[in-house]
Amino acid sequence: MSTDSPTSSTDEFDAAELQALRERVDELESSVAETDDDGKKMTIIATKGTLDMAYPPLILASTAAAFDWEVVVFHTFWGLDILHEENAKNLKLSAVGNPNMPMPNALAALPGMDAMATKMMEKKIDDNDTATIEELIDLSIDQGVELQACQMTIDLMDYDEDEFYDGVVTGVGAATALQHMAESDVQLLI
């Protein structure tokens, strides 16, 4: 390093200052990235595993991904069944407790009624060309939605990690969910 001209000492000073400025810019850019409107983030907590309740999280997740949002869906309790390769194909609709069902609860509680209500719903889904749960899962994963399965409920329900669809993230818990929620513009509990 030369000291024979005033410019070189200025350069030296600038280099240190430049470095500090660069670090500050990096720091600010990363904090801006978190709040950037173009990079919205959504976290959904999916807790229900009935056929009707499996739809809203997947429809919102796949649509948000079409907006280029970063999307995380954290599945816990019965919501795990949506990600369970075998159970996802057999999600049921409850005939009981739904006043919109064309039958009284006393009848709806009889054996076979849930299966009938589920068949009716599946037929409507088919007739209406509504996407199936499996199609929505494939679509969501294809579009980069992160589908997470709560580790505590996996253990509680005695599921095996390889029973879930490929691409499902396991080994996550409430802290991970909270972290994503805190970073998100949209947080939903379904």
């Binding site: 429809i59 991904a65 079409a66 060309d129 509504t130 929505l136």
Partner: peptide
């Protein structure tokens, strides 16, 4: 044609 929400938007994006 024939497809319902969310497919028109998602397929458009793709």
């Amino acid at each position: 044609k024939g497809q319902s929400c969310p497919m028109p938007v998602v397929k458009t994006k793709q």
